[in-house]
Simulated scan of single mutants.
Amino acid sequence: MQFRRLIALSTFALLVPAGVTACTAEGPGSKSECDVTGCTITFDRGVNAQASVLGIQAELVAVNGNNVTLKVGGQEIVVPVGETQPTDGLSVGVQQVTQDNVVVRIATGIQTNN
C-alpha cells in the first residue's frame, strides 16, 4: 500500500511542473477535484460513497451529528466538521456536511487547525 501511494505521489509531483494543476474524477457516490496540494471529495450521503485519490481509497462510513467517520487507506478515522486529522502521512479534513453531501479535503503532509 505504501509503495502504491509513493508511486501516485511521485507521478503527481512530476505532473506539476508540466502545468497540470487540477483534475476532476467521479466515483461511486462521489466527485473529487485535485490540485497540487491534495483533493477535495464531495461524498453523496445515503449511498456506498467512495473515491480513489492520491493512491488511496477513501470511503464515507457514517455521519453522527458533527462527527464524520471515514475509511482512508483502510484506516477508520473520525473527523469533526471543520477540523483536520492526520492519518498515514495525509491530512484529512471535513469542510462541510449537508443533508445530501459531505465535503472532505485530503491533502499531502500533515496540517493543523490553528
Rank of each mutant, 00 (worst) to 15 (best):
V94I: 01
G46R: 04
V53R: 02
G19Y: 04
T42C: 01
S30W: 00
I56W: 03
N101E: 14
V16L: 13
L9I: 10
A8V: 08
L15P: 02
F43D: 04
F12R: 15
G55A: 09
Q50H: 12
A22T: 12
L6M: 14
G27N: 08
N48P: 07
V92S: 06
V104G: 02
I77S: 04
I41H: 01
Q57H: 11
L54N: 06
L15N: 12
L9M: 11
L15C: 07
I106D: 00
D100A: 13
G74R: 13
E59V: 06
S30F: 00
E26L: 10
Q75R: 11
S52P: 03
N113L: 14
Q95H: 05
I56G: 05
E33V: 15
E26P: 07
L9G: 04
C39P: 03
P80L: 02
K71W: 05
G109V: 06
I77P: 05
C34E: 08
G65R: 02
Q57T: 10
A8Q: 06
N48E: 15
F12K: 14
D100V: 11
G65N: 06
T37P: 01
T84R: 15
V92E: 06
E76L: 08
G65E: 01
T42A: 05
A13E: 14
A13S: 10
T40K: 10
V61S: 09
P86W: 05
V36G: 09
T21Q: 14
G73H: 05
L90D: 04
N101L: 00
T69H: 07
I110T: 09
D100P: 02
